[in-house]
Design a protein around this nucleic acid. Structure first.
Lengths: 156, 156
DNA sequence: GAAAATTAGGTGCATATACTCATATTATAT
DNA sequence: ATATAATATGAGTATATGCACCTAATTTTC
């Protein structure tokens, strides 16, 4: 159990801690596939499911506000919404402003969420079993910290 | 400090634990932008930097083996490599097999990694400061668990 | 040794993501 | 009232990602 040197141990520990970013990207990819597989019977992707749920939660909303809520680039959201509209899951209503139109769920959209929900709950529970409840909470905390840090430094 | 009921508390806790997948995707997006911003002076993206480093680490390799190492879809990797080749950072050498050609770094690729490395180390340290060393280790553990779980269930 | 199975890889298509630039609308300052 | 600033959004372009399908080369079977 002897160590070569404390310097070497430190270097080894640092090496084991790989790039945080690629680590997160890898987890994101892997877990996205797990969720997409689980939602496949409901014929919807996890990204779209969560986007529909967000719109359902916050009610009719403009693109900018929704993008801020999701911490997603506004122009990315525009294209994601276009797909959901093509599927008939959302529709545009006139907003308080001629610049803005409000996005809201259609009946088909509400139905799609309801249809996919049991599948989502199942895979979410499976992941909870695999990782542990504390780990899931920890992930939420880390996410909040990262968002706060990014919001603090980035925007003007 | 009274609770309405243990049932309600449980539901509230469950609600606070949002979709793990979207949580990870959000972190992945946010952190990727932090790293991309940090690497911008070196004119390279974090995805490409880490891919170059992986090739540097494991030496000349075929697409399939590299994809497995990165836990990245093989066809995704093909296109990511095409961009790096276009930039002159990697090149193809004949493999042991007429089906396979080995990818390796060029001098320009090695130089690009060296040029970006200090920027990467800086942002990595900043994130370590913001999140704490224990959290970074925890993230690595979670990543390993997720990969193991996905490998265990998915592949045949 | 030839047919069949396996292995290695690429292409077409689709979604997800973000940056830059352009446009239209509203609010503000004078 | 008008020029200007601020706001809200979309379109063009580019990278990242994965699935279904296809081709070529090698290995295995008989």
């Amino acid at each position: 159990m002897k160590e070569k040197s404390s310097k070497a141990s430190f270097a080894a520990a640092k090496r084991r801690t790989e790039c945080v970013c690629i680590n997160l990207r890898r987890m994101s990819r892997t877990v996205s596939q797990i969720y997409d597989d689980a939602l496949a019977p409901a014929d919807i992707k996890i990204t779209q499911f969560c986007l529909l749920r967000a719109i359902e939660r916050i009610g009719p909303t403009g693109v900018g506000a929704l993008a801020e809520d999701q911490e997603l680039d506004r122009t990315t959201l525009t294209r994601n919404l276009a797909l959901l509209e093509r599927e008939g899951f959302i529709e545009q209503a006139p907003g308080p402003d001629r610049r803005t139109s409000l996005t809201r769920l259609t009946r088909a959209g509400t139905a799609a969420v309801a249809r996919a929900l049991p599948h989502w709950e199942r895979v979410q529970d499976e992941l909870r079993d695999a990782l542990g409840d504390e780990t899931l909470k920890k992930l939420n905390e880390i996410q909040a910290t990262i968002s706060a840090a990014a919001a603090g430094s980035g925007k003007s």
